[in-house]
């Protein structure tokens, strides 16, 4: 094998890599926060059968879970403009990530809510708490704690999945990789380094989320 490795040719573009990494993290963060919010709303609607939202969320979840993320992204970016709903690549990417994660977290959080013992809700009712108070103070914190590991996994999956957004020219990390190797023709070195960055990001994000869960949700979020 006579191939000469040249990683310096990649590091010449380190500012591009850095910007791509930052965009990937930003996309993930916004998607995670908003997606979790949607997931909580969807989960309570479905678990407590709040009409008509329970049906709306049921359809939404099935639609998203049974179609590829790339198609969801293309539909938002290329499809919606036909209806006069035009988004730039970042708006489309963020919207797609939120919609996608929202559907999965709806199902995950719902499992946590449904695991609440009936007696705890009765105890809260007999203390004259309202249903929103019961949800906020009695049901949600232990439910999130129970399913937090699954939520962390889903968020990491979504972060890795944001690489697909390069296909609509959102300049995240994969886009940066494609750009760099098209300039320096160092495909192996470029994708090797980007692989390492994704790996480190995934491990770091998982750690961060796990720690945040322990802090916010207490001892049960393991």
């Amino acid at each position: 094998m006579s191939y000469q490795f040249d990683f310096v040719a990649v590091f010449d573009y380190s500012s591009v890599l850095l910007a791509g990494t930052a965009h990937t993290l930003l996309l993930t963060t916004v998607g995670a926060v908003a997606g979790l919010g949607i997931g909580i709303l969807g989960a309570v609607s479905r678990a407590w059968q709040i009409k008509p939202f329970d049906r709306i969320f049921a359809v939404y979840v099935e639609l998203i879970r049974n179609t590829p993320f790339l198609i969801q992204l293309f539909f938002i970016y290329f499809g919606l403009p036909s209806l006069g709903f035009r988004l730039d690549e970042w708006q489309a990417a963020i919207l797609a990530v939120i919609i996608n994660l929202g559907a999965y977290t709806t199902e995950i959080v719902r499992a946590g809510i449904e695991a609440t013992p009936r007696g705890q809700i009765e105890a809260a009712e007999s203390l004259a708490m309202t249903r929103p108070q019961i949800f906020r103070h009695v049901v949600l914190p232990p439910a999130l704690a129970k399913v937090w590991p699954a939520i962390c996994s889903q968020m990491v999956i979504v972060m890795l999945g944001t690489s697909v957004c390069s296909q609509i020219a959102a300049e995240e990390l994969t886009f940066a990789a494609n750009f760099i190797q098209s300039r320096n023709f160092r495909a192996f070195e470029t994708y090797f380094i980007v692989t390492v960055i994704y790996f480190v990001l995934a491990v770091a994000v998982r750690q961060l989320l796990t720690q945040a869960g322990l802090r916010l949700l207490g001892r049960r979020a393991r």
Partner: peptide, 11 residues
């Protein structure tokens, strides 16, 4: 009301 199974909020 007090219940057979206590029903304390575990968190």
């Amino acid at each position: 009301m007090v219940f057979q199974q206590f029903n304390l909020f575990p968190h």
